[in-house]
């Protein structure tokens, strides 16, 4: 650990904590999940970056959307995202979450994921290599340093828009809004 790091730790321990302790919820949304086991086990060893998989969204602060998102999966993704405690970071993994990828013309695949939940970064490729995940992690570190990984804040401030998009797709949602909707509409008005 160099000297800069120590000063950074003293200045903002919470931010450094968020950087170096990324607990990823492993939510197998698509074929991209096949790249995750080598990443977290002996071959590539994500633990040295402080990235370990955890079982529930309550304990996690990193959400990897691994692969295409069908309409049905999206519901679970939104639910899981809302259950994660903020600050939380989302990373879209592979081409599919970005623009539908090879399912660009499917009626049942979400083409633009960031209409429904905020995404802090994308990893392009089909499939991206495990190394790409590490590149993404280091990139996320710089984003956190510069306060640019602010997806959870955007979700908070634009919640009525996200919720509107979600309701447009699903009709009535089975759970109540995460944040009170009326306040936000009033604020904007």
């Amino acid at each position: 650990m160099d000297r800069n790091q120590i000063i950074k730790w003293l200045k903002a321990p919470a931010k450094m904590g968020h950087k170096y302790s990324l607990h990823a919820i492993y939510f197998c949304t698509g074929c991209g999940i096949i790249e995750v086991p080598p990443v977290i086990t002996a071959r590539w060893d994500a633990e040295r970056f402080g990235v370990i998989p955890v079982a529930t969204p309550r304990q996690a602060n990193l959400f990897l959307i691994t692969g295409y998102v069908s309409v049905k999966t999206l519901k679970a993704i939104i639910r899981t995202y809302e259950q994660m405690p903020s600050p939380k970071f989302t990373v879209g993994f592979g081409s599919c979450p970005i623009n539908g990828g090879m399912y660009w013309d499917s009626y049942n695949t979400i083409k633009r994921l960031d209409k429904y939940i905020p995404i802090d970064g994308w990893i392009a490729g089909c499939m991206p290599r495990p190394e790409a995940i590490f590149v993404a992690v280091t990139h996320l570190w710089t984003l956190i340093d510069k306060d640019m990984a602010d997806g959870y804040k955007r979700y908070r401030s634009n919640y009525h828009l996200y919720r509107a998009n979600q309701e447009q797709l699903f009709g009535e949602l089975e759970w109540p809004p995460l944040f009170p909707l009326e306040d936000q509409v009033e604020q904007i008005a």
Binding site: F27, T56, P57, R58, R79, T80, Q83, W175
Partner: peptide, 12 residues
């Protein structure tokens, strides 16, 4: 949070 807001693998 309400008791309904609990982890169920993303399902309600």
């Amino acid at each position: 949070v309400a008791q309904e807001d609990t982890y169920a693998a993303g399902a309600a």
